[in-house]
Design a binder for these strands. Structure first.
Lengths: 343, 343
DNA sequence: ATGAAAGCGCTAACAC
DNA sequence: GTGTTAGCGCTTTCAT
């Protein structure tokens, strides 16, 4: 049997009151006599009343839901952040729903449109080039927005992300101090500030150590490369640069592909080639001799992001448009970057 | 400047027509003269008109959105499925939003309530014990629902998942045929049919090969165990059963924890201990000598799930309550289960 | 071919 | 304290 959804009107009829009274009781507004309140609450509960959010939303314009637009819903990085965002949001009475962009601009647009059209009160978004207009217009329409894992240079939109530049700089510097001089840099051919910042950190660290940057040692993997091709490409890159004694991978998945390449090439880590990857991952703990990584402060990023968002949503006056956080990362040293013996 | 959202009424005013006309034009209903249509479409486009979904939803009761409730949004398994579900859904004109339960019943309830209250037209849900009532009531209220990665025994709710029983049976059988006799079984202490089915497959495969099942070789790891403790616990389990020559891990994350344990114990794979894990993962390709896994047919599961859901949504008459798919899995043989030399 | 008007379920200003 | 009523933006029946 299909239980027709019960409405406020039904409850009014059932209790012999008016819809106002019911609405007031249910929302704890106005002052309604104890007896009537009691009765209404009881009936509402018995009938399993649930407010129709469409109606509430239409009327009030709020949904008590936060929209989280991530790059991919299948990734440990966003997964970890999602958990803390959900937890904090829940305490503040908000639900969280997700959309993914899979690094596709159109899907990003669709996601924003979808969330915008039907529901959410606030947004946490992984920005990508091409979405500036949409996101800017969200902000201009007074919607609370926080960007994570990226930002739009030149736009005053609050964001929180890891300090890509300095953490890469630090990592490269660490390699140099450990005796490596010919440091390769494998990145994705994606127009993302994160990656640009990492690249700049690499370049500046080399420069600061008087190492001439060699274009040959920078490899940009086309973005949509499938795994097998990526491995092959990285193999070629490694083979073509035998003088290279260390490689920095700018992302998790590049690091893993790199490991597979190295595995197939029978190159020894770290004797033949030292490795650092951005983004920690279980595999890097496990794979012998352990891969040194830059571990993103996921907890801090997520916590700050949701805090900033909630602050925007609860406090209109507070101008948070200038909140731009770059959180330091941690270098997790493992066996893949043992100091070169200076024999 | 905050652009006030433009409504159908505004367009009517702007074009000197009525809201009915505008609505008709925008929805391609009724027959409106070409000139007026043209004008309305133009203005709507220029003003960036977007229908207010709350209003449409309130009026029509549909949202053109599918809700996907997954166990965790940070997992490769769901991530892979999400992509195909999104793709198919999009072609059918539906958007997809996600909620996660993190294996928590209350969060599961909240997620369903949230999706139910505000929007979605159909549900794909990772079921968990304790959600029977909520999900059943969804079904009774005529909402299209498909369960993935699990099911409710005794309930007639469409579901699609991997064939847990037979795939485990097959894997254990494979171990036995490869010469292993003392096969351990590490699972999570969670009341999930998936895990029960896997366990039954294990037991039956042993029985079929006249191997007496030994309670000692079955280890149930408490669910919420944090990674470090899990590793320690598995280490203890392995040490306490020196006669054990193979271990089956019922999940991805157990397999990885197992690998870490074995790594720390300096046990050789497969000479000292053969390994199979449910759920393939990059790490299992990479970790020497390669870990044999049962690879879930994620594409097929996702495709079937969304197809069944869409069928329900578009065709009321078709009774899909009996669609219960268990899709065969593939055993990916790697170095961790080399046949025992029968010397 | 077009418009007026009702009503989806809810909130809240305004009566009484 | 409690009820009446006007919309929120949209779809759709019924008139014209």
């Amino acid at each position: 049997m299909i239980k027709r959804k019960i409405s406020i009107k039904d409850i009014a009829k059932l209790t012999g009151t008016s819809i106002t009274t019911v609405s007031f009781v249910l929302n704890g507004k106005g002052r309604i006599s104890k007896e009537i309140s009691q009765k209404i609450l009881e009936v509402a509960h018995n009938e399993g009343y649930e407010p129709n959010r469409m109606a509430v939303g239409l009327r009030t314009g709020v949904s008590k839901v936060i929209g989280l637009i991530v790059e991919t819903i299948g990734g440990p990085f966003f997964g970890a952040m999602a958990r803390v965002i959900e937890e904090v949001a829940e305490k503040a009475g908000y639900g969280v729903i997700y959309c993914s962009t899979n690094n596709n601009i159109q899907k990003g647009r669709d996601a924003i449109k979808m969330l915008q059209q039907q529901l959410v009160d606030g947004y946490i978004i992984t920005p990508m080039k091409g979405l500036e207009t949409e996101i800017q217009s969200l902000v201009e329409n007074g919607k609370p927005v926080v960007l994570i894992d990226g930002y739009f240079p030149g736009h005053d939109i609050p964001h929180v992300l890891v300090d890509n530049y300095n953490s890469t700089y630090m990592a490269i510097n660490f390699l140099i101090e450990s005796g490596y001089r010919n440091i390769g840099f494998v990145t994705a051919d994606l127009d993302l500030v994160q990656l640009q910042d990492r690249m700049q950190g690499y370049k500046d660290a080399l420069k600061a150590n008087d190492i001439t940057e060699k274009a040959k040692l920078i490899y940009k993997l086309p973005f949509d490369t499938e795994n097998k091709k990526a491995i092959a490409a990285i193999k070629t890159f490694i083979k073509q640069n035998p003088q290279m004694d260390a490689v920095f991978f700018t992302t998790n998945y590049l690091g893993i592909a790199g490991l597979q390449s190295i595995n197939e090439l029978n190159v020894n880590i770290p004797d033949d080639l030292a490795i650092i990857s951005f983004d920690d991952n279980e595999i890097f703990t496990l794979y012998p001799p352990g891969i040194t990584t830059i571990k993103q402060p996921t907890y801090e990023i997520a916590k700050s992001a949701i805090d900033v968002l909630l602050a925007q949503m609860t406090n209109d006056k507070y101008d948070i448009s200038t909140i731009k956080l770059q959180i330091p990362a941690q270098l997790i040293e493992r066996g893949s970057t043992i100091a070169k013996s200076t024999v």
